[in-house]
Design a protein around this nucleic acid. Structure first.
Length: 315
DNA sequence: AAGACGAAAGTGGTTGA
DNA sequence: TCAACAACTTTCGTCTT
């Protein structure tokens, strides 16, 4: 996996660039305070959305009457939460039985209503996939925003018929994993694999396939993103964390981070920061939380010290 | 004794002929 | 299809604190 880094994609750090596809144009949805990329549909939400009623309300009824929003529309629901159904009881709205000619008309409507509701198999697939996605992402603690992106990726994969002949599980897991990458939430492939009911190999294949076929640009996993998480696992102090972030930043400037396991870089940066700030952790401790070996920490450590010209105060 | 160091051999995946 | 390859891991002996 680390090797794929060598392909050398450009980084998309500018905030006005879509994390999903690198496009720069967004549609603004003011009502929901979101910007939606015109090319790939990635939803970037902004703060301060007020979906409440716009007049004051003093009683519960008033509040209900004045609220202007219903349940939010979500991509992570199979029918985007907008389905209508005509139920099978032949009663009208007030509960009276229908006359026979109306009944026949309703019957025909029902038939077409159901038939035209998305193409059967895909809809069924989505239903299964979305509940699986919900399960997996809550297990992994994925935030809502990333779940929506994952759902979008899955829909695209499904539309491209990538799911045929593959397990739904694998494609769902891949979508979630990629959504995490897009939103810069550090989740490793292994962590997702562990929760999903699939093996690494299937997962890897699915991930590669989706990257290839679906039009999403995936920002590379970077050591920066791992620092906060690893630091809290290690219980490091704020100044140490800041120091480590600075080291990673400099390392990236020197371009010595490309092609290396971000875990190793982050780990080594934390190790060095620990020594400099006298908030030290052993290589073993760091290696454990960053999921690389001590040897890798050592190698990165040496490289960082050498190319950044870090010297340690003798104590 | 724990921690750090580094050599050597092995692994899984990519690349290029 | 296959060999070369970079990055990383495992293992292990040695040095340092």
């Amino acid at each position: 996996m680390a090797n794929s880094v060598r392909r050398g994609q450009a980084h998309l750090d500018k905030s006005e660039t879509c994390l999903g596809c690198g496009e720069t144009s967004f549609t603004k949805d003011y009502a929901r305070a979101e910007r939606i990329c015109t090319s790939c549909g990635l939803v970037v939400s902004e703060r301060s959305a007020d979906r409440g009623p716009e007049w004051r309300a003093f009683t519960a009824e008033e509040r209900n009457a004045r609220a202007r929003t219903g349940a939010p529309m979500r991509l992570s629901m199979a029918d985007k939460g907008l389905s209508t159904t005509i139920d099978w009881r032949n009663k009208d709205a007030s509960g009276r039985a229908l006359k026979s000619n109306t009944r026949a008309a309703i019957y025909r409507m029902r038939k077409w209503h159901i038939r035209t509701r998305v193409h059967g198999s895909q809809h069924r697939n989505l239903g299964i996939a979305m509940s699986e996605m919900e399960r997996l992402s809550s297990q992994l603690g994925i935030p809502r925003e990333a779940r929506e992106t994952a759902a979008l990726i899955y829909r695209k994969a499904l539309a491209k018929r990538l799911v045929r002949g593959r397990s739904i599980e694998a494609v769902v897991a891949a979508s979630i994993y990629l959504a995490c990458r897009i939103h810069r939430i550090p989740r490793r492939l292994d962590e997702v694999v562990a929760e999903a009911k699939i093996d690494r190999k299937q997962m890897g294949q699915a991930v590669r396939l989706v990257i290839y076929q679906v039009n999403v640009n995936i920002p590379l996993a970077s050591a920066n993103d791992l620092i906060p998480r690893l630091s809290s696992d290690l219980g490091l102090e704020g100044r140490t964390v800041r120091k480590a972030a600075e080291i990673v930043k400099n390392a990236r400037k020197q371009r010595i981070t490309i092609g290396k396991d971000p875990g190793g870089i982050a780990g080594a940066a934390l190790y060095i920061a620990g020594i400099l700030e006298e908030d030290r952790r052993t290589q073993r401790e760091i290696a454990k939380v960053s999921r690389v070996t001590e040897v890798t920490i050592r190698n990165r450590y040496k490289e960082l010290v050498r190319s950044l010209g870090i010297s340690f105060p003798r104590s």
